[in-house]
Write a protein that binds this DNA or RNA. Structure first.
Lengths: 140, 140
DNA sequence: CTGACTGCAAACGTTTTGCACGGTA
DNA sequence: TACCGTGCAAAACGTTTGCAGTCAG
């Protein structure tokens, strides 16, 4: 894991305490909403402004450091940009997990059928996570 | 194509002129935003209210007649529920197309890797549509 | 006829903007 | 020191709600 200061410098953003904290929260949570960023940030920086969170997240998105993830039936969450992956969302506990799967075949087929030149894919799968399956089985 | 009145009745919604128009616009456009629904609806029903559009779309979603589609970098659009499909979005002209592709393999693999029981998949592919590829080639 | 639907206006939650102050490089 | 970033307040959006009048069944 790269130092957060370096990460910011590489994207031409100054390393302010607020930004370092945002990066750290993104690392820790994997996926996090603006509201949760704000609430957690306030523990350490009680006078932080929501505007600061928005401005920074938007700058990080523009600079390619962060990515917005739009999920069905919930507010957008944010994650650090890393290798391409897809998102699994649990219907019961709402946890979000990344998994890495080859998507070449589906993309190839989509290109063949549609004639599009595909540049990026966004895949979200909704279902029940192993923990919640277990709980459901025990309750039955 | 089923009559819109019947479609509404099947979903236990009264067939008002506004609702019939919404269904017709969904048919015609395939995917349409609230704003576009409103602007087009006003041509025929000048005094229609945005609230009516929202209320109706939300009811149609709840009754399983309509589905919300969240796309990267744009407002949500709405479509009639039909067979599962994925969305192709053109970077240049922003057109949205549906294509039907088997997703069993990717879902199977995701289930195996993650242990999730998957219930639904949301797949969006971003790229350049054939028309815009052609245009780009001609300009070069 | 009755409950559901519409249009209007106000309220709401989220995100953006402008500006003066403060901190990073 | 110069500029960028922050916090605050206000504004701008998008969406929802409450209500009185109207319409579909």
């Amino acid at each position: 894991m790269k130092g957060s200061t370096v990460l910011l410098k590489e994207h031409e953003l100054k390393a302010t305490p607020q930004r370092l904290k945002i990066i750290s929260m993104l690392h820790t949570h994997g996926h996090i909403s603006i509201e949760d960023l704000y609430n957690e940030m306030r523990k350490e920086f009680p006078s932080v402004s929501l505007a600061t969170i928005y401005k920074n997240i938007n700058q990080m998105i523009q600079s390619g450091l962060v990515q917005e993830v739009k999920l069905p039936s919930q507010k957008p969450v944010y994650e650090l940009v890393k290798e391409p992956h897809l998102h699994m969302v649990c219907d019961k506990c709402h946890k979000i997990e990344d998994i890495v799967i080859g998507t070449e075949k589906i993309i190839e087929e989509a290109e063949k059928i549609s004639g599009y030149k595909i540049l990026e894919s966004f895949i979200t799968l909704r279902g029940i996570c192993p923990d919640c399956q277990k709980k459901a089985a025990e309750e039955a």
